[in-house]
Design a protein around this nucleic acid. Structure first.
Lengths: 345, 345
DNA sequence: TAACATTATGTTAGCGCTAACATTATAACA
DNA sequence: TGTTATAATGTTAGCGCTAACATAATGTTA
């Protein structure tokens, strides 16, 4: 006799038998209780509890051609910026039928493409991807995907489907304007792991310096190394070696800014008097450091939350009033750019 | 006529038809190419590429009663400690058939239980859970799970199945021994979010102080607030208010240690002369700060890597030579505990 | 060359669930 | 009261894949 054994755990028919109903009634009772009479629903729930029944999600996905999986692709698992957004996504999805399928592209476009392909292969309910700089192939895959797609962290005027983020260019520009206004003269840029978002921040920053008459290409220092606190220290040391008259830096992100602060302290350079420092993202530590560090605050948690809310709305059949949500940013001005003799105009 | 439409994408029979073989041959060619002749394998691969075929993982999981999903449950998505371990898990699983199912228990035992229940409902290939302090119900679920289970980050002598981690008690003790050896006299503890692992670190620390004759219960300061840099600053300020003679602290983790450093700098207290500071985990920033911060280095990445390797081995039918892997830790002695007039014995 | 082992491929049924239609019980109405 | 709408439940087939067995093709040995 040809028999397969299954996983051994109770199935929907075990529940049905025990409750004295058909399997489809159990199925309905679990997915949409309103479709089943109180009487049977109670019996079914009893049976479920007795048997410790858990629906088999793969079977359900196969039969319904809906997976209740939301694919999320981020470029880093260790970067706090994405961690906050991820946390929001998980929080927002905690109650409810959806499960997260998380992928780490490690800032490699080809890896992202591979992940998108794999995830789409599972017929996800929705996709969330970081950034707006997908390869053409990835874009095409996502455009043809039959599910809502949200690009997060960044915005552009050409969404695949929906977007939640803020303008990195404007964020960079705000940093530049701030340093110019504070009266700093020889203003540099420290950039690690120059991904597309960092590039746009740098471009915005440059533009601000240009309009302020403070742009000096020699002071723009970038590397493809991944960002870290120690790297911030090394880069500012290096930059100061070539250009000892440097008097302010905008750092790619907060780790670098903290590193730059330590680098200055090590070299006996006073912050903010001899060196202004501004970071990006405003991680929690920025307010707690001594001196406290100026940064551009971004609301990563809110980004994740709104992305999920948009997805839920679309899956519920609603049409979102806006496809692009710009959450903006906010300059947090702290001690690290508070020159006593500020030349604010 | 009764017809269902499916998801519209190519199925294994489309590939089979195009390649002129049966579906099972396609299935074999994809899962275990060695079982199919070169000739057919080539034709099948061509067809796969032409049709852009991606196997339907749910169908596969259902038919084979194996899901290729590895469930991972961590208490925090934003804590760097788990992020490193997670990254290792993803890296190690990147090539190969396995997919990660990630859950965030947010340090709530009941949430962990819920997640374990849900994950087991999908028939995972393996489970990785953080810590050794599961509820009885969670333990029972995992013990009865028909898959390998690895508890990570911590170790005990009573594993559910397998373990990779290190002794937090010993880590705490090492910190205590170090401060005593360095000649500090009034040694405190700053602990945020006192989860079970932090508790064990504190207990080890206390024991070291007791044997060194330096234990003072009034100097042990804990809170259930989640740890942060600013909290480290607040706590040390508070502790010093009550006990101005405090001359060293062991911090729960590195964020707190960094905060304590900033707190001291703000108050004009010199580190390490007037205050020794030691953290836990040795995040990257600890070496880069000024003064650099002493910490207990733990290899979170390795923990994740080894956990996955153990799982792979077991799934390949091997029997691991050891069920408990103690990866240990390493004291990184830096400036923050380098008293000039050290009274090392 | 017969007898048997080995390898490559195929046939069939079923994994656990739900879509689509079918049927029956119940309410609503003229 | 019979007709029809509505709600509650059931029957059947099939989602896309692979386990288990069956068969055909090839190799190996005495």
């Amino acid at each position: 006799m040809r028999k397969r054994k299954g996983a051994g755990r109770p199935t929907i028919s075990d529940v049905a038998e025990r409750a004295g109903v058909s399997t489809i009634t159990v199925s309905r009772a679990l997915r949409d209780p309103s479709k089943v009479s109180d009487h049977l629903r109670r019996k079914i729930n009893d049976a479920v509890r007795k048997l410790n029944y858990v629906p088999h999600s793969h079977a359900s996905a196969l039969a319904s051609t809906r997976s209740n999986v939301i694919g999320v692709i981020v470029p880093s698992l260790t970067n706090n910026v994405f961690a906050d957004t991820l946390r929001a996504i998980y929080d927002e999805l905690y109650q409810g039928p959806f499960q997260v399928q998380l992928g780490n592209s490690r800032y490699v476009a080809k890896d992202e493409e591979r992940l998108v392909r794999t995830f789409l292969g599972q017929g996800p309910s929705a996709m969330i991807v970081a950034g707006v700089d997908q390869t053409d192939a990835t874009r095409e895959l996502l455009e043809n995907a039959e599910c809502p797609v949200v690009q997060v962290m960044d915005i552009s005027d050409d969404p695949i489907d929906m977007m939640v983020g803020f303008s990195h260019f404007e964020g960079g520009r705000a940093a530049g304007v701030h340093l110019v206004q504070k009266g700093y003269k020889r203003i540099g840029f420290l950039g690690a792991r120059m991904d597309p978002r960092s590039h746009r921040r740098m471009e915005g920053f440059k533009e601000a310096l240009r309009s302020g008459g403070r742009y000096d290409p020699d002071l723009m220092m970038t590397t493809t190394d991944s960002s870290s606190v120690s790297l911030g220290g090394h880069l500012i040391e290096q930059l100061r070696k070539c250009r000892p008259d440097l008097d302010a830096v905008f750092c790619n992100n907060d780790d670098m800014a903290l590193g730059a602060l330590f680098g200055c302290q090590k070299a006996g350079i006073s912050v903010p008097d001899e060196m202004g420092i501004i970071g990006f993202n405003d991680l929690e530590m920025m307010a707690a450091s001594y001196p406290s560090l100026t940064s551009i605050r971004t609301d990563r948690y809110q980004i994740g939350k709104r992305a999920v809310q948009m997805i839920k709305a679309v899956l519920d059949g609603e049409t979102p009033e806006q496809k692009i949500i710009d959450l903006g940013f906010e300059l947090q001005c702290r001690e690290s750019t508070m020159r006593p003799k500020s030349k604010a105009r």
